[in-house]
Design a protein around this nucleic acid. Structure first.
Ligand SMILES: [Zn+2]
Ligand SMILES: [Zn+2]
Ligand SMILES: [Zn+2]
Ligand SMILES: [Zn+2]
Lengths: 142, 142
DNA sequence: CCTTTATCTAAAGTCACTGTAGCTTATCAA
DNA sequence: TTGATAAGCTACAGTGACTTTAGATAAAGG
């Protein structure tokens, strides 16, 4: 039986995060000692490792919930899991695209300013006026 | 004098977001009509446009606050503003790097699975075990 | 037995908004 | 002038994925 701190160390997850996963039903409710402390089996460790690795690959907790559900029924086809991964891939590609446009614009801003007064700062000038931009931006936070 | 909806339309900002910016002190408190509705000057419109454009370029509200403060004192050097922009550039480059590693890993996962049962799904296999990965991942959400 | 370390709960804070409920004000045509 | 409609108001809750804090209790080692 593993204490929560052991799971924490073995997976690089904060203790509070593990409790949070329990709270939202992503981890099963753990058994307790007579004193009320959580105790885990190896399979809980595996599940947590799955969750954390999926998070590192950028999957949302909702996607991870689906993937875990699928993983629990080994007989069925994996089409669903693959489509979740492909969706994730598309999202990552989208984000890269957007960030590359930002990078280009930021690079230009920084390069064009020669560090004179604020009144002539190219950086601030661009921020004041999008028509100075070469690319157009999509929605904020996309 | 402009109503809040006019600012909203002209800058593509939701009305609630404008009120939120006032609440956190990013926009000045607007004047009011006798009935209590907000009314704005052109300079408020300019400020909001600056904020939104900066957000589109990925700057945090804290950075934008600094940039606005600088912008209000045209005499001083723009070194500070330029350094904020360079910091932002570095952050964007970092995120691109991380996302490109994710993309590579996701692509491989998706490509290697031939869509048989969940038990043999390559996607799920990789998620279960990081040692199947070719790259290592930095912190979650970085 | 005592101290230190680990764990517990509950609640608030983070970022940058978005959404909702239930009102009140402004504007314009009839 | 009335009355419909659009636009605005406040206050608060919700989003995602946690992190932080405070204050209390449990476990483990010497
Ligand atoms: Zn400059
Ligand atoms: Zn622009
Ligand atoms: Zn598969
Ligand atoms: Zn991995």
């Amino acid at each position: 039986m593993l204490a929560i701190g052991t799971l924490s160390r073995k997976t690089g997850t904060k203790v509070q995060t593990i409790r949070y996963y329990e709270q939202i039903g992503l981890m099963n409710e753990a058994g307790r000692t007579s004193g009320g402390q959580r105790r885990y089996y190896e399979k809980d460790l595996d599940r947590l490792a799955f969750i954390r690795h999926s998070r590192q690959l950028g999957f949302s907790l909702d996607s991870i919930r689906e993937l875990l559900d699928l993983s629990d029924n080994p007989a069925q086809s994996c089409a669903e899991a693959d489509s979740i991964a492909r969706r994730q891939l598309r999202q990552v590609e989208q984000r890269i695209k957007r960030l590359q446009a930002l990078k280009k614009e930021l690079k230009r801003m920084v390069a064009e300013c020669d560090g004179e007064s604020v009144a002539e700062c190219k950086v601030l000038e661009v921020l004041r006026d999008h028509s100075e931009c070469l690319t157009n931006h999509d929605e904020i936070g996309a």
